[in-house]
Design a protein around this nucleic acid. Structure first.
Lengths: 343, 343
DNA sequence: GTGAAAGCGCTAACAA
DNA sequence: TTGTTAGCGCTTTCAC
């Protein structure tokens, strides 16, 4: 079957016997149009199956495309899924559509995606920046009026709005919870790479909690993993130390899955766990998993409203907005520490 | 700060002292260009921060936009996240970008999204169709050469490629597993609405397994839920019956979360569970959750490769491709049924 | 190897 | 109330 050319405004105009501009007027509810013409035009549109070419329209109007470019590390990670959903819900009312891509945390993939998005003249750019990515190339776009917001981690190379969780305080609270329950040797399994903003902040919170309690910082207890399987391996390694930790702090949701799975597999009910970021089924575990919950909905919504107000002309100073985390105590942080049992 | 006009091809041309066409040639590696001109052009592009306007290019070239329109029910559901990731991974090599939106399973939102996508002249349309949505309006686009693929559920109103799981057989196997372990009263908690394709298919599998075993089909054991909380409620209602089920079959991942959470909350370790679709932490539960796992990666990849081959001119008959599910036995289906204990 | 003119589908700015 | 002309930023066509 031949690929028929799609009908254009001109085709509709010819069909009705009016000018292209008249059809345009009817469809965009621009200027006036007699009831009769309107009817005829709409009928012809229907008959021909005409659908206006949005690209052509945009090019003529000159404004930005009605899309939001969103770069996240992984479409499959539920945390970013929740963020994306909140963003979509917020911008939909404004008629904006999501252009999405995953960077796999690789700076070159991130750059390729943003370049593509920019070439489409997106209305808003939102990025979860990869480690090592430089964003100074966005400067000219910013001054040209493009709202740029970084999510989950701050961008680098230019001043823009950032929306991040209270990583340091949240991790501090989670670790303090473990300490309050008698644990003195607490393992930390963070994300990778170690330069990652969230990794550093959460580790800083871990350290400050230890310090505050006068506990020594043992480097052997600090390790990393970049996926669930790696976190499982890291867990068994930590527990295999000659002086092993009695509690573990998970640096993110994926690490938490790895830790919990490994503990279940090896039947280690005696190891306390607190995780950064909530996970599904946390309350159905035995014991239920205590977490420092992030608020992905709020992160997405805040980022979107910030970007929209920039789009509306807000030229005030760039802000770093901090979305609070919340310690949800469910039990896993309260497993008796050996120190207490011996006492 | 004034919103400076972004530089155009003409600006670059003027800067170098060549024609616009020459710049175009250099950038697209179209016709010939002297090494010297090329250098100068590239330098000017860099200096001015020029980025070609993809919309303008597309409009002139007349081809479809290099995007894939994807409509899913919920960006936050990990199942669809995994599907989307697989799609992106597959189409990225072809230079295609994802245009995404969530329908919330509402036909009008689905229609609004697809219309927007079509107005952008997407290269491929992929949709998880909502219940009650009619797709006959896509007919003209199909004949005009637009590949249309339905995911997870078949579309209606026109012949197109569909990619779905082996819902019926999978559910059958899951329920048969419960029966094999002595259960005779098995509750079914399905998705909503009840007209949903996956709901119907999985229920049919449930019924066929009962029938095969010569077990009666008790309507009181069949119920539904449209979110996790609803599934929890449904669970306690089923267990509150005078002749309650000894096992539950979850119609999807969200329902599974609700069932498992409710059983944990009420301390009911005696109820067997099998879930359709795998969930995180399934193996860390006690007992570990037995599931009929779907293969979202394969669903996404298959849908994408099918669509790409259509884009390449494959005009063979529309196919409904079935991606196999896999019963993963982890323990929760093997809890002793009262019938056995009494024996 | 390079340029001039025309035109993709649409709308702004004017005129009628 | 409607039409005409011009032009958005780019590429095609054909000439040089």
């Amino acid at each position: 079957m031949a690929a028929n050319r799609r009908p254009t405004l001109a085709d509709v105009a010819r069909e009705v016997g009016v000018s292209a501009k008249t059809v345009s007027r009817v469809l965009n509810e621009d200027g006036p149009a007699s009831a009769r013409t309107r009817e005829q035009v709409l009928a012809a549109v229907d008959r021909l199956g005409f659908q206006p070419n949005l690209m052509a329209r945009n090019i003529r109007v000159g404004g930005p495309d009605t899309t939001v470019g969103l770069v996240i590390p992984d479409l499959g990670n539920p945390f970013f899924g929740a963020v994306a959903r909140a963003i979509e819900d917020t911008v939909r009312d404004r008629g904006l559509t999501l252009l999405m891509g995953s960077s796999a945390d690789a700076p070159d993939r991130e750059r390729a995606l943003t370049d593509k998005f920019l070439a489409r003249r997106i209305s808003i750019l939102m990025v979860v920046p990869s480690v090592g990515a430089d964003h100074s190339h966005l400067k000219s776009h910013r001054t040209a009026g493009l709202p740029v917001v970084f999510l989950d981690r701050p961008g680098s190379g230019l001043p823009t709005d950032n929306v991040v969780s209270t990583n340091r305080d949240g991790a501090h609270d989670g670790v303090a919870h473990l300490i309050a329950h008698g644990h003195r040797r607490i393992g930390f399994i963070g994300d990778l790479p170690t330069k990652l903003y969230t990794r550093r902040e959460r580790l800083a919170g871990y350290r400050s909690a230890l310090q505050e309690a006068g506990l020594p910082a043992d480097r052997a207890l600090i390790t990393n993993a970049h996926d669930q399987h790696g976190a499982s391996t890291a867990t068994s390694q930590l527990l295999g130390l000659t002086d092993p930790p009695t509690a573990l702090f998970a640096g993110n949701n994926i690490v938490a899955l790895g830790i919990v799975t490994e503990l279940a597999r090896s039947g280690r009910k005696d190891v306390a766990v607190v995780a950064f970021d909530d996970v599904e089924l946390a309350e159905a575990l035995e014991p239920a998993l205590t977490v420092v919950a992030q608020n992905p909905e709020e992160i997405g919504r805040t980022a979107a409203t910030t970007a929209l107000s920039r789009l509306d002309g807000d030229r005030t100073r760039a802000l770093t907005i901090t979305v609070p985390t919340r310690l949800i105590v469910r039990g896993s942080g309260e497993r008796p520490a050996p120190a207490l049992r011996e006492a």
